[in-house]
Computed example of a mutant assay.
Amino acid sequence: MHLLIFKTNIESKKKVKSLNPVLNKHSDILDWTIDLEDIDNVLRIEATSNITESDIIDMVSMRGFTIKTLTD
């Protein structure tokens, strides 16, 4: 398992809910959260090693959101 962390423009519960079908049904995503109180609206994903940051960025971008990897 590894943790993937992203900065997003997802800023409401309604927008978070719109990602449920995409992220909840992906077999390599074990758990995910979006911190709406963080200035960066951080998306944290616990996933298997079979999924990459690019895969997540593509999935979220296709829903019309801005997303980029957060580094330390």
Score class of each variant (00 low, 15 high):
D40E: 15
T52W: 03
E46G: 08
D31Y: 06
A47I: 05
L43M: 08
I10M: 00
I51C: 07
V42C: 03
T48S: 06
I67L: 07
D40L: 13
I45A: 12
T48W: 03
S54A: 13
E37F: 09
N50S: 13
W32L: 03
T52P: 10
N20I: 13
S18P: 05
D35Q: 13
N24W: 02
F6K: 07
L4A: 05
T48Q: 08
T8K: 00
N9P: 00
T69V: 11
T48V: 05
K25Y: 00
S61Q: 07
T48F: 05
L36R: 05
M1P: 02
K15G: 00
I57T: 04
L30P: 11
K13F: 07
K7Q: 12
R63N: 07
R63I: 03
H2W: 06
S12N: 03
N24Q: 07
S27G: 10
T8W: 03
D55P: 07
I39K: 01
T66E: 03
L3R: 00
S49D: 13
V16F: 11
L4S: 09
K13M: 09
N20Q: 15
L36F: 05
I56L: 05
L23Q: 03
L30T: 14
W32K: 08
I56K: 04
L36H: 08
R44M: 11
H26W: 01
M1K: 02
E46V: 11
H26G: 06
D55A: 13
G64M: 09
R63T: 00
K7D: 01
P21T: 12
K13P: 08
T52G: 07
T66P: 05
T71W: 00
H26K: 08
S12Q: 09
L19Q: 01
L3M: 14
S61K: 14
S18V: 01
V22Y: 10
L3K: 08
I5S: 04
M59Q: 14
E46P: 05
T8M: 00
T69D: 04
K68T: 10
H26I: 04
A47S: 15
L30C: 11
K25I: 02
T69F: 04
S49C: 12
L70R: 14
K15L: 13
D72G: 15
I29Y: 02
I51F: 01
D31C: 02
N50Y: 13
S18I: 12
W32Q: 01
T66L: 15
